[in-house]
Computed example of a mutant assay.
Amino acid sequence: MKLKKIHHIAIICSDYELSKWFYVDVLGFTVAREVFREARNSYKLDLEVGGQYQIELFSFPDPALRPSRPEAAGLRHLAFEVDDIDEAVFHLNELNVSTESIRVDEFTGKRFTFFQDPDGLPLELYEV
């Protein structure tokens, strides 16, 4: 098997309109397609990230909760590359999105920080 790249990342949210606002208006992702799937009483929102990757944002009635702290088993966090972490943190803070203190990766020397989406999904900004 020869995997070429990550095709998409799927996220299930508990409040579709709030999460849509967060990923589109706060993080600045572009809506590629939005559909309501009547049989599932569910929205599916396809988002472009930098014209390269895709996030699928799903809504379902009463989704089950699961641990999402970075130390829980499973997916640890989703990281986004930025050119200027100070600018990105300022933008998030201006929109009342709390961020952790900026840290420096001890192995790469790169700066990074964590924040959360409306459902507490841990997200990271990583400066390149």
Rank of each mutant, 00 (worst) to 15 (best):
A88Y: 11
S68N: 10
A73C: 07
L47T: 14
L121N: 14
V89R: 05
I9E: 01
Y53H: 13
F60D: 03
I11L: 15
F114G: 02
A73T: 09
W21E: 13
S98T: 00
L123Q: 06
V89Y: 02
P70T: 11
V89E: 00
H7A: 03
G109N: 06
Q116R: 12
F60N: 01
S68F: 07
Y23R: 07
I55W: 11
V31F: 03
G120M: 05
D15P: 06
E94D: 04
E56K: 14
S101L: 07
L78T: 15
P118L: 02
T108G: 08
T108Q: 09
R111T: 05
E106I: 14
E94G: 00
H7E: 15
D46A: 13
Y16N: 06
F115G: 03
P63R: 05
A10V: 14
A88R: 08
T30N: 11
S68L: 11
E17Q: 13
V97Q: 01
R111F: 08
A32E: 15
D25S: 12
V82E: 04
L92A: 01
L121V: 15
A73I: 12
E81K: 08
E38V: 01
G74F: 15
V35S: 10
L75D: 04
I11Q: 15
K20M: 07
G50Q: 14
H91Y: 01
D117H: 10
I12Q: 13
V104S: 07
R66L: 03
V24L: 10
E100W: 11
D119P: 09
L27V: 04
I102Q: 04
L57N: 04
G28E: 09
D15W: 10
S19V: 02
L123A: 02
V49L: 15
F36K: 00
V26H: 09
D83R: 13
P61F: 08
C13P: 12
D117N: 06
N96D: 06
L75M: 15
L57V: 05
I102G: 08
L45A: 08
I9F: 05
L92G: 00
A88L: 07
P122A: 09
F115Y: 08
Y126I: 00
T113L: 10
